[in-house]
Design a protein around this nucleic acid. Structure first.
Length: 585
RNA sequence: GCGCCCAUAGCUCAAUUGGAUAGAGCAACGCCCUUCUAAGGCGUAGGUUCCAGGUUCGAGCCCUGGUGGGCGCACCA
């Protein structure tokens, strides 16, 4: 419809330029918008206003010229010039019902689109360190990332979902030591657990697995383990130095077995995260290992490439990346004097790897606390010779949990955090997925557990699902009756309808595809969530004021036709958000 | 100190990405209702869009400077 009107305006402008009413050097970008207020017609354009300056004429005057030059069209009932120079278009209701035909014809594909040369897009999200189960903070990144990926995919991108597994580094060593100490306890050793160790119950669970697999092979006496270690924090020492000493001890005592210990912990937690996300409706195409970057030589390759491009230098034995050349506020170390590469070096290699895999665009979804990292990664990408615009970083702010008005305390200390799993169990996957994406990602959000669980109109998930179930129920009843749904008759009646409620539902249905498009180009799934709320709300109003299964066939057919279309769009939208569309509730 | 993000009704949030009279839901108030699915429906009230400038036909949205809040400023991951 918009395209059609754009065409009409373009034709009008061409004639005006030809007959000299408008100068030829104007280059109009014709924008057609949905009107907010129906007294302004169905669609509106602001071309006249944007042309006012280049054409040096009053916008209302230009608007008049355009409407006069507009070719005939059978979808328009009339045009109007309003306000400062808007051209308002009134569409015949008969053409408005065409959208309903499209919905039935395309069914679950309605709103989706395919493009000829789909852009290859990678969406990397969650990527939490595998040192413990996901907590509620990760949940938002998970829901947001998955939905963005699905929406991109629905609008024609070739999407790959990826989880970057930080399976290297000190935090993982600390996990391994933590598991080992719990294992030693399990073997009967008496010991004091380090202040900086991982204290969650899951660590003990993994320790049991280690014991099952390796029996007493990794056992050493407390005396051996703790001999000549510095003091831990509670005794007046430094907990960082203490844990590092413990890691070194663990390494030297276990020798080759250290890697086995490490792997049991890593795999247990990674599998747990994978299951957790899968139960949350999120499955990845790729679990990318950080360690693999070293073993495949990608880290070295990346550094050589930076070196060749002249972006590395040595200072005090360290190898530095000159990121200040690309707007960073300080240069960054990529290789320490002891020869060990930094985490950032891995990340440079990782991004090089992403682009080398042929992705046209890479979307990283990060927690808001990582925002300081964006500049340096983009710097690295430019330095490697790629266009850093191809990397899109979306930050997700934290969600604060409430139980009614009371704030739920979240603490990662002493292992007493609220896990994503617990949250899902309490409020259900559907409510979680939906609530997490109803807000813009870069806004802080309040997540009310009570609301998410409630079965009332106040709860948007419930309200939308309820609308879907209601329609299913009515259509089931219809199937049991002597009546048949006559869609053609229904469309005809709808086309002649002057009911405001019906018109605004038709209007909303027509807006679904562009809502998706909009959500995709801006990475804003909340637009879809809000859209569904609006559609459900408009439908409930309709349902409450019109009985569906009535004797009078015109009313019956038109109402059921419209309802069936609403059901399809609700189902399509919910499925994109990873939320179930139940037939009954 | 520097950088990033945020600020809209009493509360939680929208606003078609610069469009016309800034909208929903809670809460408040006033009516109605007991149903094809019931956990409700209709309506009223509520605003200097944090402040001060600027850009233009037009600003909640863009620019500059403030105020307040969150986060970040490692050779850690």
């Amino acid at each position: 419809m918009k395209q059609h009107i754009t065409g009409l305006i373009q034709a009008a402008l061409d004639t005006l330029v030809q007959n000299g009413s408008l100068p030829a050097d104007i280059n109009p970008t014709i924008m057609i918008e949905n009107t907010r207020d129906k007294s302004h017609g169905d669609l509106a354009s602001n071309v006249a206003m944007t042309l006012a300056k280049p054409a040096r004429r009053n916008p209302r005057e230009i608007a008049t010229l355009i409407t006069q030059a507009l070719p005939q069209s059978d979808v328009l009932t009339k045009t109007e010039i309003a306000g400062p120079g808007f051209i308002n278009f009134f569409i015949t209701s008969a053409s408005a019902t065409k959208i309903v035909e499209d919905i039935f014809a395309q069914a679950e594909n309605f709103g989706r689109c395919t493009v000829e040369n789909p852009e290859k897009v990678q969406v990397e999200f969650v990527s939490a360190n595998p040192t413990g189960p996901l907590h509620v903070g990760h949940g938002r990144g998970a829901a947001y990332g998955a939905t963005v990926a699905d929406i991109l995919s629905a609008t024609g991108s070739d999407v790959s979902r990826e989880y970057y597994v930080n399976d290297a580094g000190r935090q993982m060593d600390i996990l391994a030591v933590s598991v080992w100490l719990r294992y030693l306890e399990e073997c009967g050793e008496n010991l004091t657990f380090p202040a900086n160790g991982y204290k969650g119950q899951y660590v003990s669970d993994i320790a049991l697995q280690v014991k099952q697999k390796y029996a007493l092979k990794m056992q050493f006496s407390s005396a051996q383990v703790f001999a000549d270690l510095p003091l831990d924090e509670p005794e007046g020492g430094n907990k960082e130095q203490y844990i590092d000493a413990l890691i070194a001890r663990c390494n030297s005592l276990l020798a080759d077995d250290f890697q086995n210990l490490f792997n049991v912990g890593l795999e247990a937690i990674r599998d747990d995260i994978r299951d957790d996300l899968s139960e949350f409706g999120i499955d990845y195409q790729e679990w990318f290992s950080e360690r693999s970057l070293t073993s495949t030589g990608d880290v070295d390759k990346a550094l050589i490439r930076l070196q060749d491009n002249g972006h590395l230098y040595e200072k005090e034995g360290n190898l530095w990346f000159k990121s200040t050349d690309f707007g960073d506020d300080k240069d960054r170390v990529v290789k320490r004097a002891n020869g060990a590469t930094t985490y950032f070096a891995s990340d440079i290699a990782y991004h090089m790897n992403k682009f080398d895999r042929g992705f046209d665009k890479v979307v990283n979804i990060w927690g808001a606390d990582h925002h300081g990292y964006i500049t340096r990664v983009k710097a690295a990408i430019s330095a490697l010779g790629y266009d850093s615009e191809r990397l899109v970083v979306k930050l997700v702010q934290f969600a604060i949990l409430y139980r009614g008005t009371e704030r739920v305390q979240m603490s990662t200390r002493s292992g007493s955090f609220v896990t994503l799993r617990e949250l899902r169990k309490e409020v259900g996957t559907d409510a979680c997925r939906f609530f997490y994406v109803t807000r813009k990602a870069d806004n802080h959000m309040d997540f009310d557990l009570e609301l998410a669980k409630s079965q009332s109109k106040d709860n948007p998930v419930y309200y939308i699902q309820y609308a879907h179930a209601r329609i299913c129920s009515v259509l089931d009843k219809l199937a049991d009756s002597e009546w048949q749904l006559d869609i053609d008759a229904g469309l005809k009646v709808l086309g002649e309808s002057s009911d405001d409620n019906e018109k605004s539902i038709l209007n909303l249905l027509a807006k679904y595809p562009e809502t998706l498009k909009n959500a995709a180009t801006n990475y804003e799934p909340h637009l879809v969530a809000n859209y569904l709320k609006e559609l459900a709300s408009e439908f409930h109003t309709y349902y409450n004021s019109n009985k569906m299964l009535v004797e009078e066939s015109n009313a019956r057919n038109s109402r059921l036709t419209l309802s069936a279309a609403v059901r399809q769009v609700l189902a399509n939208g919910l499925s994109l958000l990873g939320v179930d569309a139940p037939n009954r509730m």
